[in-house]
Simulated assay, not measured.
Amino acid sequence: MSTVIEHAVQARLVASAPQTESVAATLRYDRDDPFAVSMAFPPKATLEGNEVSWAFSRELLTAGIDEPAGVGDVRVRPYGYDRTVMEFHAPEGVAMVHVRTSELRRFLRLSQVLVPTGREHLYLDLDHDLAELMRDAC
């Protein structure tokens, strides 16, 4: 069984101008980093023309589907029928995207198969992580 889930979604970029654009984005969950998910945007969706990936907690994504969540760089909240707004805050500005809530729920269900909520600690390799920290310190 694979330890990584990648799930393609259509994200609608929201801008101050009346025009909106859809881009393909990728949600990713890796059992080796059980508390986190990431969302990657292709180069054409970014100011610099490079792929950009944001990492945030799976718990934030889960909570934000039903009620506003997040106070930092990533914020998630429901928006109308079957839409979730994701805001990504950076020094350059704020990117806001709409994603189908049903797609986010599907992704979260797949992640639950790999690592059920509340069991994340069982998938951490703390001995390996500590050894890496100590190796770098010497």
Rank of each mutant, 00 (worst) to 15 (best):
W54M: 07
A131V: 11
D82I: 06
Y79A: 07
Y79S: 07
M86F: 12
P68Q: 05
A69V: 11
P42S: 04
R105V: 11
H121D: 15
L110M: 11
F88D: 02
P68K: 03
T101I: 05
R119T: 12
L124F: 14
P43G: 05
G70S: 13
E103K: 11
L47Q: 13
G80C: 13
M96Q: 11
V99A: 10
L61Q: 05
G80R: 06
D127E: 15
G72Q: 10
N50S: 05
F88H: 00
R105G: 11
G70V: 12
S102Q: 11
E132S: 12
D73Q: 04
V97Y: 01
G93Q: 11
L124W: 01
R106T: 14
V94L: 05
R135K: 15
L108D: 06
A63E: 06
R58C: 10
S53A: 14
L60M: 03
R100S: 05
V85H: 07
D125S: 13
E92Q: 14
L61S: 02
S57M: 10
G64L: 00
D66N: 08
E48Y: 08
L110E: 08
P116K: 11
A40G: 11
T62L: 08
S53D: 06
L108T: 04
Y123H: 15
E103Y: 02
V113M: 04
P68C: 04
Y123E: 09
A69R: 09
R105F: 09
E132G: 09
L108Y: 05
E59S: 08
L110H: 08
Y81E: 09
G49A: 10
M86R: 07
E103C: 06
R105Y: 09
F56V: 03
G80T: 03
V115A: 00
P42W: 05
W54T: 00
T101L: 02
A55N: 04
A63W: 04
D125F: 13
Y79F: 09
A95V: 08
A69Q: 08
P42T: 01
V115K: 00
A40L: 08
P43Y: 06
D66Q: 01
H98V: 00
G70Y: 13
V94F: 03
A95S: 13
D82W: 03
L114K: 07
R119H: 08
I65F: 08
L110Q: 09
L122M: 09
Q112W: 00
H98L: 12
R105K: 15
T84Q: 04
L110D: 03
P68V: 02
R58Y: 13
H89L: 14
T117Y: 14
H128F: 13
R77N: 07
T84P: 01
V99Q: 04
G72L: 05
A63M: 12
N50A: 05
H121E: 07
E48G: 11
R75G: 08
A69H: 07
P91Q: 15
F56N: 00
H98Q: 10
H121I: 12
D129K: 00
E132L: 15
S53C: 06
G72P: 01
A69C: 13
F41D: 01
L122T: 04
Q112L: 03
N50K: 06
E103Q: 12
G72D: 15
E120F: 10
T62K: 04
Q112F: 01
L108G: 08
D125E: 15
A95Q: 03
G93L: 07
E132D: 15
P91S: 14
